[in-house]
Amino acid sequence: MKQPNSVPTSELMLRETASQTAGPYVHIGLALAAAGNPTRDEEIWNEMAKPGAEGELIEVVGTVIDGNGDLVRDAFLEAWQADANGVYQPEFDLKKPFNSFGRTATTFDHGSEWSLKTVKPGPVAHPNGQLMAPHINLAIFARGINIQLQTRLYFEDEAEANAACPVLSRIESPTRRQTLIAKREEADGKVRYRLDIRLQGEGETVFFDF
């Protein structure tokens, strides 16, 4: 320990452990099935909502694309969202019909999409009292990504809420706000939202520092 008042306050605080890339084999640790390995009894994966969960069951899908326009096939993603009532449910329990936390990965085949089965989240209050439009926080990890990239997925069919969202509207470039809006698709009576995450260059996704 350092003697208080004799050193700058920054020296009284520890430094965070430095980040390193999750690497190409992140799946063996955090997404076992994607590595082609046997799974344990309980895994944290992409079925955040099961039938019976309150709210509208949806699927959220997308790709991850690099600066060359190529698919990133070894990305690993984590999702964090409120329930249909706009409440975060920190307690992760696979026996519950809905969990706020989920994981997914792009695949090495089939168009290399990540996907989440979830419910559409409700709006969450911003500390300034306004409501944030429904959104899902996403973190992207992969080989070549030295510290996770953090973004938000918003919903195309929430145009009014999106326009009023204090986080979305704080993004300086209106053009770039569009990189966070997932497009609605309907197939076989199921509602699906699609967001392609562009790591670099034209149409680059907005990533947050918080």
Partner: peptide
């Protein structure tokens, strides 16, 4: 090719 070129949006 996997690094953003734009600045991060600070909250």
């Amino acid at each position: 090719p996997r690094s953003p070129q734009q600045a991060l949006a600070s909250m």
